[in-house]
Design a binder for these strands. Structure first.
Length: 649
RNA sequence: GCCGACUUAGCUCAGUUGGUCAGAGCACCGCUCUAGUAAAGCGGGGGUCGGAGGUUCGAAUCCUCUAGUCGGCACCA
């Protein structure tokens, strides 16, 4: 057989015997590379390390230190987990395994004994046996009929075989490790012995195929690494994520609480949390007004008919609080969103094209009956206040307005020092269009318009089908919570539907009536979610302008310098600084420690020396040393710090 | 909503196979010490062990139901 030509990433081309493997190629380059290699990437496709290459192509060696290498390892770990489960529970039905950014998982269904976290040690022990046995892993391709025989009536596997066969000319790939054979579409390590560093983490339910109408399987989660150092670092990362969790910090810093006896998902803002929220609220209102928004207040209760007209009742009835029957035929609804309210504002006057874009904004309190399992701290609640805004534009103003909103958003993010986010264009699901407002032309046009605007601005984004609102496509800004869950922070949504349903119009230059387009937009999400987000981002160490307590004054001796401390407090407070004197009957060290654990940006220690010179000894949060400053200078420093949204904390 | 685990003082947690097991630290209150950059000392108050049933001579501990929390899944206008 003729040699095949292998092209390397640097462009070099070398002949290899037909049927050579990635391993052969790697070894030909260097022994050290072969040691690090776990798989190949041949013509852009991940291939097994020992898979024969039978045509010309470009190769990349996938090594242990790449994300792809880690995925290969975790795929293998997932298969080892499946093997262990199979040995421990022969009757168990198997769903799918997965490798993720975080680790790996495998789904199972066992009628007699559902796997629970108590079983993890035994499963892990069995996995260790399999790893120790160092079983070679090989890929085999079977005909559909043989694959079906192999899975022996397992309902989930049978379905997977059929799907795989349908997608691949009746061929189904399986991986064998010892006697255990399993379906897998992922490239794997050469041997079970390669899965040296791993552990199981948790068990949780997961719907088969991700559909809530399907049965629920038990998903075992674990993680795996190539070396102990990375595993240890991952442990630390998980631990730090928990410390960053806004629910933990919210409790430690006394920001908010939720009392299940009073109502799940109904948060109470303690003074500290309320101060942060108030600061955010004042900031965003001022910012929006500067940018041409008109801020309004509208009722939290509204006639149910408005939500029937908007379509929300039809789409979200289950997630709304039940309407109040007032007894005389009137039905009042706790509003789940603010659009109809702002539409009322729009409709209150005859609108001229000269008024457009008309920007209506509100910190609108809304209530949604979120499913109990969805509730989480301040991130998912049943009463929330949304930084909401609706701009009403003429059709030819859409793109400009979209860009304006985006610019405003970027400005706001900069003020909060938010850097870690990504854009997602959310389209309707083309396979499931009945969920959405029925107007194909509108969807096509609107989606194209959003994409065009993003491309014009040169911004990177991912496109997500099925993530649109029922009335239109949107641009979402995605961030991550401390625990790594994705959440939407900002959103800009195009809406051609509500203006039609509510019969909105404006008088054009031609004297005729025209229909406006609505753009729904939220910059900083709800006060609840945004506060949670900031708490996690800053790890509770809020920058001075947001910190509930900005300055703590500690007299060395209350008796001797108490009057000076109080004089300083008055000066600072009069300038608008949130300042307290710590006059408790405690030692100075205790109070300094207390100020630090409460993450107060500035601690001022004042003793006889400071009193005499009218100075302060300043210690910033997180710093070990202190500096001496004239009290006047300190005041101007703090004020400057606040005014500039300084991020030093 | 679904699967699983969990729920003991304001907070974080101990409580072995049901039998002085109702505890600790922090916080809180009181007293003493008047402090120079991350916890002074002593003393005190505080919980019908999430709730409701049940088993038992006896339940924080076992069973059932229920609420909530957590981890996921689904949902997220």
């Amino acid at each position: 057989m003729a040699d095949i030509k292998i092209t390397f990433p640097d462009g070099a081309v070398k002949p290899f015997a037909n049927g050579s493997t990635t391993a052969d190629v790697a070894k030909s380059i260097s022994i050290s590379l072969a040691k690090k290699a776990v798989a190949g990437k041949f013509n852009g496709e991940l291939v097994d390390y020992e898979a024969p290459l039978t045509e010309d192509g470009k190769i990349e060696i996938v090594t242990k230190d790449t994300p792809e290498g880690l995925t290969v390892l975790r795929h293998t770990a997932s298969q080892v987990l499946a093997n262990a489960l199979h040995q421990l529970y022969p009757e168990m039905h198997f769903g799918q395994g997965e490798a993720s950014d975080d680790g790996f998982s495998f789904d199972t269904d066992n009628a007699d004994h559902q796997v629970s976290s108590d079983d993890l040690p035994a499963i892990e022990a069995k996995m260790k046996e399999i790893v120790k046995a160092n079983l070679p892993i090989s890929r085999e391709v079977l005909a559909e009929a043989d694959a079906l025989k192999l899975v022996d009536g397992d309902p989930y596997q049978t379905q997977l075989v059929k799907q795989a066969a349908a997608a691949n000319d009746g061929q189904v790939a399986v991986y064998r490790q010892g006697d255990f054979v399993d379906l897998s579409d992922g490239v794997q390590m050469p041997s079970t012995g390669d899965v040296k560093i791993f552990k199981l983490l948790s068990v949780a339910g997961a719907y088969w195929e991700g559909k809530s109408s399907n049965p629920m399987l038990q998903r075992v989660y674990g993680t795996a690494f190539f070396n102990q150092k990375d595993m240890d670092a991952d442990d630390v990362r998980r631990k730090e994520a928990r410390e960053r969790d806004h629910r933990v910090i919210g409790n430690d810093l006394d920001l908010f609480f939720v009392d299940p006896k009073v109502g799940a998902g109904l948060p109470y803002w303690m003074p500290n949390g309320a101060t942060i929220r108030r600061t955010i609220e004042r900031y965003i209102i001022d910012k929006e007004i500067q940018h041409g928004y008109e801020h309004v207040y509208t009722p939290v209760l509204m006639n149910l008919d408005a939500y029937k007209t908007s379509g929300h009742w039809e789409h979200y009835r289950e997630d709304m609080f039940p309407p109040m029957d007032m007894g005389d035929g009137e039905m009042l609804e706790l509003r789940p969103m603010n659009c109809p309210s702002h539409i009322q504002i729009y409709k209150h006057h005859i609108r001229s094209y000269r008024e457009l874009p008309l920007r209506i904004a509100e910190l609108g309190m809304m209530h949604r009956y979120e499913k109990s399992g969805a509730l989480s701290g301040l991130q998912r609640v049943r009463e929330m206040t949304l930084n909401d805004g609706h701009t009403f534009v003429a059709p030819d103003q859409i793109q400009d307005e979209f860009k304006r909103i985006l610019n405003l958003m970027v400005e706001v993010y900069a003020d909060f020092d938010i850097k870690d986010y990504s854009f997602r264009l959310s389209y309707r699901d083309p396979k499931n269009t009945e969920k959405y407002f029925a107007n194909d032309e509108m969807w096509e046009k609107a989606q194209k318009m959003l994409k065009g605007a993003m491309d014009d601005l040169g911004l990177d984004y991912v496109e997500a089908e099925g993530e649109a609102a029922f009335y239109g496509p949107k641009l979402d800004v995605q961030t991550k919570t401390a625990l790594g869950n994705e959440e939407t922070l900002s959103t800009i949504q195009l809406d051609f539907m509500l203006p039609d349903r509510f019969d909105l119009h404006y008088v054009g230059a031609d004297g005729e009536e025209h229909q406006p387009v609505m753009i729904h937009r939220g910059l900083v999400s709800t006060m609840e979610r945004f506060t949670a987000y900031l708490t996690e981002m800053y790890k509770g160490a809020f920058p001075t302008w947001l910190a509930p307590h900005q300055v703590s004054i500690i007299p060395v001796s209350e008796e001797h310098q108490g009057d000076y401390a109080e004089k300083l407090r008055k000066q600072l407070a009069a300038a608008g600084v949130r300042v307290t004197v710590d006059d408790r009957n405690e030692k100075m060290n205790f109070k300094i420690r207390d100020a630090q654990t409460h993450k107060i940006p500035y601690t001022l220690v004042v003793g006889d020396k400071e009193k005499q010179d009218d100075t302060v000894s300043v210690r910033r949060y997180g710093h070990d040393e202190s500096t001496s400053e004239a009290s006047k200078d300190f005041l101007s420093d703090v004020l400057n710090d606040i005014a500039s949204y300084s991020r030093e904390n």
